[in-house]
Write a protein that binds this DNA or RNA. Structure first.
Lengths: 190, 190
DNA sequence: GTCTATATTCAGATAGAC
DNA sequence: GTCTATCTGAATATAGAC
């Protein structure tokens, strides 16, 4: 691969190769899911040997763990009114550029137990934070719904690529969804 | 398995065995998805031989096709106002008893191309019908959102079993979602 | 440090015995 | 019509050569 390395030390070379493998794995996991992504395919796409992938990451499971490690959502805080805007802003961000690592986890969330747990944990954390602010007796259901709705819209856009959702401007989507989130974060009992 | 069959003809016996295999396959596909469900596991759970499953259904793909064949949604028609109630009624039904066949398809929709196409086709059909009624210039986006929201809530309840969503009474969920659907089916431009 | 060769396991599918 | 035995291919993982 590398010609006579000018400044790249051996350790630096290794770091770059490892990063390239990881980026390739993220991409393939996000497109085809855990089970249908093979170590061999990752190696081929990253232009390295399959054995090297194993050597660096230990196992397919560990490779997936690293490839799907996403930065956790911003903590939510403030008044119930601010809450709606924060949720919409977070969703807007996910609609514009959801990181490949997150898509890798979402892609496998229905079929790979680790991914299921990852998504559940992430949503649960958010539900806890939100429920503290809402403090209604059906808070957990309301926050579960905002999470499920966000999840459905993200999946519909990035993974299923539904007509109408796939190419719509994020701003327009957010505007249409604002009443939904407002009604769900409103404190009035049904 | 069968003792001295009293009234069951050989053809009847076969029909029953085939139905038992299909029901078992539906269950396992809906729990673990396409890739992690093996012919062998289906055979074991149905108390038949793996060869018999192949003999009856030809291939794993064909078994999945039959196991995940769901009855299509009711056609939607009427005025925009009736439309909201119909969507909510359909969702209420899915929250109470989503058929195992549908869950089998939903479980694999992110990782198995056939299932992806099945879900996309089902949602597209519904979007077409709804868009005809709405006749707003952003109709396709609005109907895409109602589909994505329904999908997210069904997945959150049945497949991810999110806290708050998992055990909530369908009536209560529907009430909380009514404003969402009303705002999305309202004809006013944003 | 990188890659080759291979061991091991397990899946779907097939052919043929009872 | 039902089941046993087996073929074939592919995947992860390992051991060792360069």
């Amino acid at each position: 691969m590398a010609g006579p390395a000018s400044h790249t030390s051996r350790a630096e070379q290794r770091r770059q190769t490892e990063a390239r493998i990881l980026a390739t794995a993220r991409q393939l996991f996000s497109e085809h899911g855990y089970d249908r992504t093979t170590i061999r395919a990752v190696a081929r796409a990253a232009k390295v040997n399959p054995g090297l992938v194993m050597h660096y990451f230990g196992s397919k499971e560990q490779l997936f763990t690293q490839a799907s490690a996403a930065t956790p959502d911003e903590p939510i805080s403030g008044t119930p009114e601010q809450l709606t805007e924060q949720l919409l802003a977070t969703l807007h961000d996910k609609l514009t550029h959801e990181p490949t690592a997150t898509l890798a986890m979402l892609r496998s969330m229905l079929t790979h137990p680790d991914a299921t747990e990852g998504v559940r944990a992430s949503l649960s954390r958010q539900q806890e934070q939100l429920s503290d602010i809402l403090s209604a007796d059906d808070a957990l259901l309301r926050t579960g719904l905002t999470g499920a709705i966000s999840l459905g819209v993200v999946i519909g856009r990035h993974l299923l690529q539904l007509d109408g959702l796939r190419d719509a401007p994020p701003d327009q989507i957010i505007e249409l969804l604002r009443p939904c989130f407002e009604s769900l974060t409103a404190s009035g009992d049904s």
